[in-house]
Design a protein around this nucleic acid. Structure first.
Lengths: 170, 170
DNA sequence: CAAGATATGTCAACATGACTGTCCCAAATC
DNA sequence: GATTTGGGACAGTCATGTTGACATATCTTG
C-alpha cells in the first residue's frame, strides 16, 4: 500500500494546454475515462462470473460494505436505479446469504443492509481486484496526479449530487 | 472553450496523502470514477432515447467520428465486444443511414466505417453533451488537475492496451 | 384516532446490450 | 490450391435496466 515513497517516476502524459480547451483535449478525457473505467472493473468480472453474479451484484455489495447498515432507499439513491431492479439483486444476495437485512431501529419500516461474513469475504476479494488496479495507477501517476484525478471527477458530478459522494468518505 | 484563463479557482478536494495509500483513498477513487463516469454519459442519454438508440450506438458513432474510415475489426478492438454484438449495432446505424461502409482500398475484405452527414450531425449533438460536462469539470478543477486526471486514468489501462488509446489522439 | 405519506416488497411485461455457437462468403496469403 | 482472415448472419440465452400497478407495514400529522 505504499504510495510514491520509493516509487517509479510519475507516469508522463502530455500536459493539458494552459489556455485553451481544444476538442481533442475533451475527447482525450472522454476516452481515458471510458477505457480507465472499463479497465478497473474488468478484474472483478472473473470472480463475479465464477459466483454466477454480475456487476449489479458487485455494486450493491460494494456500497453495503462501504456503509454497513444503510437502508434500501439510501442504496437506491446511490445506484440511481429503480426499486424493482435493485429488488432482484437484493433477493439474489439474500438468497445466497451474502447480505442480511435488519429492521431499522428508529424507523421500523426501513430494512438496513449488512454483509454476512460470506458476503464480506466476497466483497473483500472483489475490492482487492479493484485496489490492485487503482493502487498501481496511483503509484505510477504520483500523488499530485491523484489529487487532480479526484478534482476533475468531482467536477463531473453535478453539484447537487456531490454531498452524497462526499458522505461516503470517512 | 476557455480553460482556466479567467476561470474560477480550482475545485478544492482533500489532497491525496503523500506517503500511504489507505483503503479509503482507493475507495474514493473507485467511487469518483463510478459517479463521474455515470454523470458524464447521463447527458447524452436523453438525445439517444429520443432517437430510439442506446449507448452501444453512441459508442460506435463516437469512435467512427474520432477515426473516420476505421475498419470493423479496429472498432471491435476498441469496444472490446463480440462481432455479433457489434453487428447488430452497425446494422441499425446503416439502416438509419447514420453510418456508411466503404470497401477497403488495400484490403478489399475490410469495410471502412464513415459517418453520413446525418450521422455526423447526431454525433456532434451527442459530443456537445459530453463536452459540456467535461469542459466544466476541467475548468473547475484547473489545468494541473487535468494532467493528473489523464495520468491516473492512463495508469489504469493495462500497458499492453495503452498504445491503442494513444493512437486515438491527434 | 383517522388520514395521509413513506419505506419496502412484489408481480407482470418489456427493452437493451451483452454473450455463445455455428455457419457462410469473399478476399488475401502461403 | 489450401489456409487464414475480415466480415456478415442466424438462433438462442442472460443480465440488467425500464414502467406501471398494487400490497403492507409503519410513521407522521391534523
Amino acid at each position: 500500500m505504499q504510495f510514491s515513497a520509493a516509487a517509479a517516476p510519475p507516469l508522463k502524459v502530455t500536459p493539458a494546454s494552459p489556455l485553451f480547451l481544444r476538442e481533442d483535449e475533451i475527447r482525450r478525457g472522454i476516452e481515458l475515462l471510458y477505457f480507465g473505467y472499463s479497465a478497473m472493473i474488468r478484474g472483478a468480472d472473473a470472480i463475479l462470473e465464477a459466483q454466477g453474479l454480475g456487476r449489479a451484484h458487485h455494486r450493491a455489495l460494494y456500497f453495503i460494505a462501504r456503509r454497513p447498515g444503510l437502508s434500501v432507499g439510501e442504496l437506491l439513491g446511490l445506484l440511481g436505479i429503480t426499486k424493482q431492479s435493485l429488488g432482484r439483486v437484493l433477493t439474489d444476495l439474500n438468497g445466497r446469504e451474502l447480505v442480511e437485512q435488519r429492521i431499522g431501529t428508529n424507523d421500523r419500516r426501513q430494512r438496513l443492509l449488512l454483509l454476512t461474513p460470506a458476503g464480506a469475504a466476497l466483497e473483500a476479494r472483489l475490492f482487492t481486484e479493484l485496489e490492485r488496479s487503482m493502487a498501481s495507477a496511483y503509484n505510477e501517476a504520483g500523488q499530485q496526479a491523484v489529487t487532480g484525478f479526484w478534482a476533475v471527477l468531482m467536477g463531473l458530478v453535478p453539484p447537487a449530487d456531490r454531498a452524497q459522494v462526499e458522505a461516503l468518505q470517512g
